[in-house]
């Protein structure tokens, strides 16, 4: 309510600059809960972990400063590169496919059909299933003899694949598993599609545009903000993939599912190297921030905001 009072103040001598000042003030007031939250709950833990990344810290006795030794260790750590490769593989192959699939599903659900609510709920089912349960289910679907996937492959006389036992198949297996969780992205797309004004669709339809042209020229431009959102957060989230490997493989076979955050977790709570874990964490932040920044820069050229100012 304070915002309302400030902005309502009588106009000053220089209306333009005072309006601007009020706008700035209103802007800062609106975002203040977030900034306050950052200062109270996040700034100290972030700072602390940054400092700890220059220490040896086993959680049981106070950290001791060791300079950049953890960063040295990382550069010489073969498994750091393995974990980074595994994670990048999972992210850069998985995320685009997830987004495409989520969009297709959302399009299928964005229709006026009787009972569509039931289908929406059904499509969302895999996403709300507790992760533990769905990982366990998927492990069984990957059984070489009785699993669903090999059953289908067998119908086409394909090879018998040892999905979780063969280091070269286990990452693709995990990516396929990740499709199971696209319900979240699907719902976001659905919400985005719901915001595409029907009148626009109608206008294009009357102009004789086909389904595919309408999709590319009307629908897609209108939902670029949500595509962008799913892309940015897909990459951020995917770089932190953890649960599936934690439950299904523990990083094996031969470290082929040793994902970055799993490796970090093991250092923190199994090897008691919180200092090195913090180093890994901050390097991950730098890597993900790099890709996010690229996304934001490139995004300027393809993301269309109806209400953007410039």
């Amino acid at each position: 309510m304070a915002v309302a009072e400030t902005v309502q103040a009588p106009r000053g001598r220089r209306p333009l600059s005072s309006a601007r000042l009020k706008r700035y003030l209103a802007g800062y007031l609106f975002i203040s809960p977030g900034i306050l939250g950052f200062v109270i709950f996040t700034a100290y833990p972030m700072l602390f972990s940054a400092v700890v990344s220059f220490t040896k810290y086993n959680l049981l006795s106070p950290p001791s400063f060791i300079g950049a030794a953890n960063y040295d260790r990382m550069i010489n750590d073969k498994l750091f590169y393995t974990a980074l490769y595994n994670t990048a593989y999972y992210t850069f192959i998985g995320v685009p496919l997830q987004i495409a699939l989520a969009l297709l599903l959302a399009l299928a659900l964005n229709q006026k059909l009787r009972g569509i609510n039931i289908f929406r709920t059904l499509f969302y089912l895999p996403t709300v299933t507790p992760a533990v349960a769905s990982v366990i289910l998927f492990m069984y679907m990957y059984n070489p003899d009785y699993g669903f996937f090999n059953y289908v492959i067998n119908l086409f006389n394909g090879p018998r694949i040892d999905w979780l036992g063969d280091p070269s198949w286990v990452k693709p297996a995990f990516i396929i598993m990740s499709f199971w969780g696209v319900g979240g992205q699907m719902v976001i797309f659905l919400a985005g599609l719901q915001s595409v004004p029907l009148t626009l669709q109608e206008a294009a339809s009357i102009d004789g545009a086909g389904v595919i042209r309408r999709f590319w020229h009307v629908t897609v431009p209108m939902i670029t903000p949500v595509i962008f959102f799913n892309l940015v957060l897909g990459i951020i989230g995917s770089f932190q993939v953890f649960t599936v490997a934690f439950i299904a493989t523990g990083g094996g076979p031969i470290n082929s599912t040793l994902f970055y955050v799993l490796w970090l977790y093991q250092h923190a709570f199994e090897f008691l190297r919180m200092g090195y874990a913090s180093t890994l964490g901050w390097v991950l932040l730098a890597i993900v921030m790099f890709f996010t920044a690229i996304n934001f820069l490139v995004g300027r050229s393809w993301v269309y905001y109806e209400g953007a100012t410039n």
Partner: peptide
Amino acid sequence: PSRSYSKTFQ
């Protein structure tokens, strides 16, 4: 049964 096999068997 290999480790990965027993894990994928229900």
